[in-house]
């Protein structure tokens, strides 16, 4: 930890010292206390969106997101208090009621860890959308989108500076938008693939992967791709 200023705090009853400037998430992980995250990704700016990494800090009115909260002198942190566990379980249950998490093994694992009931919220409004297949490189299946923001961040200031994607709508109707819903080839998209790389749920998938899942082999995929390019060229 070098000669930098150190911060003393208590993590789940254990007194520790860590360098100033660390986040609670860094500190907790350093001492092998497992904290679940959903939106957090090393390549994109943490915005504290999913709140799945919340912890209880004594003296604070609300729970705090570990990913963006810096360690503070004499903080007393509880990483798995009753309030924390209720929030994590409920967030997962509410998310499962809205989005298709079938291709998110990490989220399925969290559901099991936090005793989240997949059927907790009956009659819930789900995100539903047609699979968008408008370019030769990847498909967008927004039923699986959990609005982690990573694709928009990767498309913008965090990686590619292309700004083809943005957040549209509001509240539960928030969605990933292009300019007036334009198909990707008509936007500034350069098909760099960064958004696909950071998507945690399979909402964005490379076309090859998508076809393989549909049971095609590579020959069939090649034919299919050639056909779709030809069709596009004619239209």
């Amino acid at each position: 930890m070098g000669s930098a200023k150190e911060i003393s705090l208590t993590l789940d009853g254990k007194a520790v010292k860590v360098p100033a400037g660390w986040t609670l998430l860094q500190a907790l992980e350093h001492f092998e206390i497992k904290i679940p995250v959903i939106c957090f990704h090393g390549a994109t700016t943490p915005e504290g969106i999913c709140r799945q990494c919340v912890v209880e800090v004594e003296g604070r009115r609300t729970l705090l997101p570990a990913c963006v909260t810096l360690v503070g002198e004499d903080m007393v942190v509880h990483s798995a208090s009753e309030r924390v566990l209720r929030a994590r379980r409920t967030i997962l249950e509410m998310l499962h009621a809205s989005s298709d998490l079938s291709q998110s093994p990490e989220l399925q694992e969290q559901m099991a860890t936090y005793n989240a009931d997949p059927e907790r919220f009956p009659q819930a409004r789900r995100r539903s959308a047609e699979v968008l297949d408008d370019n030769p490189f990847y498909v967008r299946d927004y039923e699986k989108c959990i609005l982690c923001w990573r694709c928009v961040q990767a498309c913008g200031d965090d990686l590619q500076f292309t700004y083809a994607l943005a957040l549209g709508g509001r509240g539960h109707e928030t969605h990933i938008a292009t300019f007036f819903d334009a198909p990707l080839p008509e936007t500034t998209c350069v098909f760099c693939g960064n958004c696909v790389a950071v998507c945690p749920t399979g909402a964005l998938r490379s076309k090859t992967e998508f076809f393989l899942e549909q049971g095609m082999d590579y020959d069939q995929i090649r034919i299919e791709k050639r056909k779709s390019r030809r069709d596009r060229g004619q239209s």
Partner: peptide, 12 residues
């Protein structure tokens, strides 16, 4: 719609 608890919770 930014954070999950409110985006999802207000709807539920």
């Amino acid at each position: 719609g930014k954070c999950y608890p409110c985006q999802l919770g207000s709807q539920r």
